[in-house]
Design a protein around this nucleic acid. Sequence first.
DNA 1: AAAATGGCTTGACATATGTCTAAGTACTGA
DNA 2: TCAGTACTTAGACATATGTCAAGCCATTTT
Lengths: 119, 119
Amino acid sequence: MPKSLPVIEHSEVLCCAPVAAGIVSDPDALDLALRLKALADPVRIKILSFVLAGGTNGVRNVDLARDLHLTDATISHHLRQLSQAGLLIASRSGASTFYGANRTALGALVRVLDPNCCA
Amino acid sequence: MPKSLPVIEHSEVLCCAPVAAGIVSDPDALDLALRLKALADPVRIKILSFVLAGGTNGVRNVDLARDLHLTDATISHHLRQLSQAGLLIASRSGASTFYGANRTALGALVRVLDPNCCA
DNA sequence: AAAATGGCTTGACATATGTCTAAGTACTGA
DNA sequence: TCAGTACTTAGACATATGTCAAGCCATTTT
C-alpha cells in the first residue's frame, strides 16, 4: 500500500526501445523499475505463466494457492503487485475474483527493454 | 555475495516464450526472477541506458558515479548485480574497468517474457 | 439462519536490499 | 618512491519485501 498504482497504458507509445537509446529520464527509470520489480519474483513469474496458460477465463486466488503451495494471503499479496503494475486485470464475479493477463502491458514492458526493437 | 553468478548464455535457446506457454518450472522461474531483479532498480536501469548509449568503448565506475550522483561503492554494487546477471560484461584495462552491455543476454531475457514472441 | 467458501487486510516476523563511510588493493604518473 | 586515481570490499544502517496466522467481509449453499 505504500506505492500507488500507475496502471498506465503506454502500450504502443514507447517504441522503440528508449533504454537502448539512452534517453531514460529519472521518472521513466523509476516507472520501469517498478514494473520490473512486480515481475522479479519467482512466485509471480509462476503466477503469470499460470494466468497466461489459463486461457481467457482467468485464474482464481484459491487455485493458485493450491497449485503453488502458498496461503491465500500470500497469493493475494502477489496478485496485488502484478495488478498494480498493470500486468494482470482483475474481474470480480460473485464470490470469486478472476485474474487475466494484460498481454499488451506485458508486450509494452518487453518492448522498452528490447535492444533490437527497431533494429 | 550470497547469490552465486549464473552467467549462463541461453540466448537463442529459449524462444519462444516459455512464460506465455505456461511451462515455467521452479528453477526456471527462479532464474528468470533473479535476472529480472538485477534490472528492477531505477539506478540500474539508468546504468544500463548509459552503457547502451555509450557505444562500444564501455563505461567506467567513476563516470557513472559522477553522472548519477552516487558513491563509487554504490555504483560498484550495482555493476556487480548487472554483471552477475550476465547483462554487463566487464573488461579491465589498467586501473580502469570498462563495462559493456551484453545485448544478446538482454535480448534473450526480453524474448522469454514476450507474449507475442512467436505469434 | 447458519455454515461454508473465496478473498482481502492487518500485524508480526525474518530476510533482502540500497546506500554510505571507511578501509584496502592495484595501477598511473610526477 | 610517493601521491593520486580507479575500483573493490567490509561493516553498518534504514528501508523494503515475502510469508504466515488471524480476523473480517461478501457470497454461496444447506
